[in-house]
């Protein structure tokens, strides 16, 4: 186990070092890469995670027990889906010369999925309430 861990660690450090060499090779572009690298960590640890923690505290203290699992489910499914949907909902990459790109009614699709999720969560909550949780 010790040897396997050491070998795995050495392989990982090798891959990591190669990546850092490639990153340094990006030259002046590296500055902007670092901005996005650090920005991602700050956006998660400084904004997204605290918001989720506050939501968790609110759910644990304010929401009735029968509703809580439904709220957790909604957050876990719709939260990431919303982040994934940002590039298409905003259609930031759309170009007038290419109508085949970003050519779906994204808001309608997103809202349909969200509505389905709310319905499923609602059904779960009602079932738990009837069961007297």
């Amino acid at each position: 186990m010790r040897a396997a861990r050491a070998a795995l660690g050495a392989v990982g450090l090798g891959l990591l070092a190669y990546g850092l060499v490639l990153a340094v090779g990006l030259g002046p572009q590296l500055v902007n890469v670092l901005v996005w690298f650090v920005g991602g960590v700050v956006a998660h640890d400084g904004v997204l995670a605290p918001v989720v923690i506050v939501l968790g505290v609110l759910a644990a203290t304010r929401a009735p027990a029968w509703l809580r699992p439904a709220l957790v489910g909604l957050l876990v499914v719709l939260g990431p889906l919303t982040l994934v949907a940002v590039p298409v909902l905003g259609r930031f990459g759309a170009r007038p010369d290419n109508p085949t790109l970003l050519d779906r009614p994204y808001w309608a699709g997103y809202l349909a999925v969200a509505a389905l999720a709310v319905l499923a969560a609602g059904a779960l909550a009602v079932r738990r309430r009837r069961a007297g949780v």
Binding site: G12, L15, L16, Y18, G19, L22, A23, G25
Partner: peptide, 10 residues
């Protein structure tokens, strides 16, 4: 591409 190696290595 560069960050892919950093990510998989870490």
């Amino acid at each position: 591409y560069a960050m892919a190696w950093v990510a998989i290595g870490s």
